[in-house]
């Protein structure tokens, strides 16, 4: 091999393109070897770059969990909220300053378990935020407890004989609550995930991208599925792309086919559009369209 292509941090003559988007003082990150979370961060950074949005107009909000760390690592205005409350915090940011692109990056447990109520209402109101739900099928950070997304029969620390609770199908949940954009990819499908993030950012209203991601240490190990690399190989062999699929058909069973694709793209009035429209009707000319609560 050639010497010039292998560099140690000290002699590195050229910075990694991600370095300027990361808080390098917090690196190395805490994520385990073969965890897929780092890939999701790269895809988000690429999508922001592709979208051409100024990073000054972007805010990233996370809840608690391994995925929640994203807000601490990405170098844009970001906030690591309390568990389950990423969406309400993001809603507040968006309403205070509607010009901001507000992105929630959080885990399946954070968004669908403790934060499930916020999730359904943000979708119902068609709040103009982008939600990236990293689904590793488990509460990873706290030791592999069962989540409302754990597939039936999968092992979790609080389901030592296998899970008997039926999981949520996240795209169906978002769709039935009225989300404007719904897609699911795996962390292996980096380019498609990047495109989906960019589309979700551009779509007005509530957009959701579920990213099926390996958790090597808790989910894979507890279920004897090998490493995160083995899970990527599993996705490679068992993911089927079906754009526009009926979201009712998107259940994920333990170690069986995972359907991926862009399922929903619909235009429905956003929360702020409905607000302006209604108050315009009620108050007529006296009403001034909502412009946010921050002074420039």
């Amino acid at each position: 091999m050639t010497k010039e292509t292998t560099v140690t941090e000290e002699t590195q003559e050229q910075a990694h393109p991600m370095d300027e988007l990361l808080r390098m003082d917090r690196m190395p990150h805490i994520w385990c070897p073969t965890c897929g979370l780092g890939t999701v961060v790269t895809a988000l950074a690429m999508a922001l770059d592709k979208s051409g949005i100024s990073l000054d107009d972007v805010a990233v909000v996370s809840g608690i969990g391994c995925t929640g760390r994203v807000a601490g690592y990405i170098k844009v205005d970001s906030f690591h909220t309390t568990h389950g409350r990423a969406i309400p915090f993001a809603t507040g940011l968006h309403l205070a300053n509607p010009k901001l692109k507000v992105i929630v990056v959080s885990g399946d447990g954070d968004l669908i378990a403790i934060g499930g109520n916020h999730f359904i209402h943000a979708a119902r109101r068609n709040m103009d935020i982008t939600v990236i739900c990293v689904n590793n099928f488990i509460y990873a950070m706290t030791g592999g407890q069962v989540a409302p997304t754990t597939p039936l029969t999968a092992n979790a620390s609080t389901m030592p004989y296998g899970n008997f609770e039926p999981p949520f199908n996240i795209p169906y949940l978002a769709d039935s609550c009225g989300a404007s954009y719904v897609a699911r990819w795996s962390s292996l499908h980096v380019r498609r995930m990047t495109t989906a993030f960019a589309e979700a950012l551009a779509a007005p209203g509530f957009s959701l991208v579920e990213v099926v991601t390996p958790c090597s240490t808790l989910y894979a190990r507890r279920n004897r599925l090998g490493t995160g690399l083995d899970l990527l190989k599993f996705y490679h062999d068992n993911c089927e792309i079906e754009h526009g699929a009926d979201t009712r058909s998107l259940d994920i069973d333990f170690q069986s086919t995972i359907k991926l694709g862009k399922f929903i793209e619909r235009r429905r009035p956003t929360f702020l559009e409905s607000l302006d429209d209604w108050y315009g009707q009620v108050f007529g000319d006296k009403y001034e369209p909502y412009a946010g609560a921050t002074s420039e």
Partner: peptide
């Protein structure tokens, strides 16, 4: 794109 450690480019 895949590297979760931002270690290769």
């Amino acid at each position: 794109l895949l590297c979760p450690e931002f270690a290769i480019f």
